[in-house]
Amino acid sequence: MVKSFMPKTLAEALKICDEHDVCPIAGGTDLMVRNHQSAGILPTFTKDMLFIKNIDELTVLEKKDMHLIIGANITLNRLLNWENTPQILHLALQEMAAPAIRNMGTIAGNICNASPAGDTLPPLYALDAIVCLKSIAGERELPIREFILGPGKTALKENELLTAIKIPIGDNNINFYKKAAMRKAAAISKVSIAMTAKKEKDKIVNIAIAIGAVGPTVVRLAEAEDMFIKNNENTGKVLPDIYDVYDRQIKPIDDIRSTAKYRKQVAMNLLHYVYEKCIK
């Protein structure tokens, strides 16, 4: 049987992290699923568990300087109902899981779970989200794309906690989110795309596109985005090259939920749609 730590403060929690090999648990909607057993049997956690849900310092939700700060305990539902949530993230949250899960699950958990199909990840990549990591030794920040290393793998060190997510406040005025899945609610994504862009005087001056579930991590190709912005006077000319960049770098797989062929085709269809229709 594993030990459970239930600290009241972040300082206590960081100390526990430093002294023990623990697994932090917030809402539990991923961890309780992955380790579940049948009725009457405790979940099969292999590490001591660090309950962080009741740590107030992790429940911040604020606009500060040029960032939105989202504490590790902020639930998906709280974010869905926050007036400052970026629209592209809001679109993804609306379609994510179902109310009971959104009432417990956290965006921090979705990040640490590091599933290629994680629903909040494409918007967070597109928004250049930053994760704040704390340990007893200090704190550091990492862009989300450097934090997530692969399926289920992150750069979180054993003595660290992900305490918050920082999202730069932007003024993008076009957003598009699409998730292809087996059904219209409570579904895991087969492919998803999040696009956020800024249009100024009929020109796209800023664009970010992230595609989920088509590789080990979310695909966001700065090379393609830059080509588009640099040629924003005459994008028609560079579009074939842009698609070529995506075509070369999107390498999905077959799995229980879909096929590589489907994922690739749908990702390309959605990219065409985004570059040619959405931002017109």
């Binding site: 699923v33 179902a98 087996m182 059904r183 219209k184 609610a185 409570a186 579904a187 895991i188 229980i256």
Partner: peptide
Amino acid sequence: SRQNNLTNYTIPTAMD
């Protein structure tokens, strides 16, 4: 069978 739970074996929800 590869679909052995209600996450992977998807039956209709109220949204469908």
